[in-house]
Design a protein around this nucleic acid. Structure first.
Lengths: 192, 192
DNA sequence: CCTACCGATCGGTAGG
DNA sequence: CCTACCGATCGGTAGG
């Protein structure tokens, strides 16, 4: 007589939560909204996730795992730092807009998470994402490819440049990423 | 016997609202919090501002006016686009951290404003801020200073690079802004 | 996984 | 008719 467990529901909750979180931030949506969109009761959400904090942390961890895979691919496929970063940007632009926006919004919304969740996120954010990119810069500097700037700073600047485009519907993403990468690598000044 | 009007209160409300808005976003603070911090009643806030939406719009407009003044100074003091942008970045880093953060957070939080307030903000955001910077790029491109990229795109990339640093306590802001500007103008690649 | 609820707090407004 | 508020409470919704 056990109710049939739907393994799909947990994934559906994560998907709807990700979309609503991106659209409105942590305090900009309610657990009721998710339940209503999925046609389930609110306590059904609490069966799969301890609380709102836990649900959003799961959304963020899933996104970080995906970005981590993207970076793995870049490191395997390319050898130079420039090629790796170029591939990374293009593969990020190929993600669903909601996935792109997540990484941009996360940093701003973690203040609404519990201290423990914040700590967990920060750890994984470094391990799965920025730390990996910093390593690419480190390698590129050692290979004489980049100027000798602090790789941590270079990473922040690099991600900052990309961040405005992490929430676009974006028809001409290809052109935008080309220009952005060109300015980052070669500068905006006209060459003499 | 008329109660002495405190013209300071309205400014105090704006100041506290700006800080709480920066810290937690539109839905991350309450009108009660503002009232309690200032030791006044909540209706006292509603005497000065129609509602929460109106209060935050006023916070954003004040910030845009300040940025507009900053840009005026840059255009008056310098002639080349590179010098103007350099001065702008340095003057932004000289602002109180809360003022810096406002411009970064605004774009993310306007979804929580009423359609009318959003429209008002977007208009002023373009007129007082990004439109002015775009004009600087336009002039720089026409003067042959910058490569011939879309000045609107250049503005977004430029502001994006700066955005990660718009919320730092920031001891070595000087060094950070130098490196960031250097990469933007001359690129991250090692010159041969 | 549901119905049925709770303590609290939200933005906003009543009369005085 | 104005200002600068107060104590109390409105209808709704938050997480649980």
């Amino acid at each position: 007589m056990a109710v049939v467990d739907s393994p799909a529901l947990k994934e559906q909750i994560l998907s709807v939560a990700a979309r609503l979180f991106v659209a409105g931030g942590y305090n900009g949506f309610s657990m009721r909204q998710i339940a209503e969109e999925l046609g389930v009761s609110k306590p059904a959400l609490y069966y799969h996730f301890k609380d709102k904090d836990d649900l959003i942390l799961a959304v963020l961890i899933a996104a970080l795992e995906e970005y981590n895979q993207l970076i793995n691919t870049c490191i395997v496929c390319d050898s130079s730092a420039r090629q790796r970063l170029t591939r990374l940007v293009k593969s990020i632009f190929d993600l669903a807009p909601e996935k792109r926006a997540l990484i941009r919004i996360a940093g701003q919304e973690i203040v609404h998470l519990s201290p423990l969740s914040r700590q967990t996120f920060n750890l994984l954010y470094h391990e799965k994402f920025i730390g990996r990119i910093t390593q690419i810069f480190q390698d590129g500097i050692q290979a004489g490819e980049f100027m000798a700037v602090d790789p941590v700073l270079a990473t922040r600047i690099f991600l900052g440049m990309m961040s405005p485009f992490f929430h676009l519907p974006d028809g001409n993403a290809r052109h935008i990423s080309d220009v952005t990468l060109s300015i980052f690598f070669e500068g905006a000044l006209r060459h003499d």
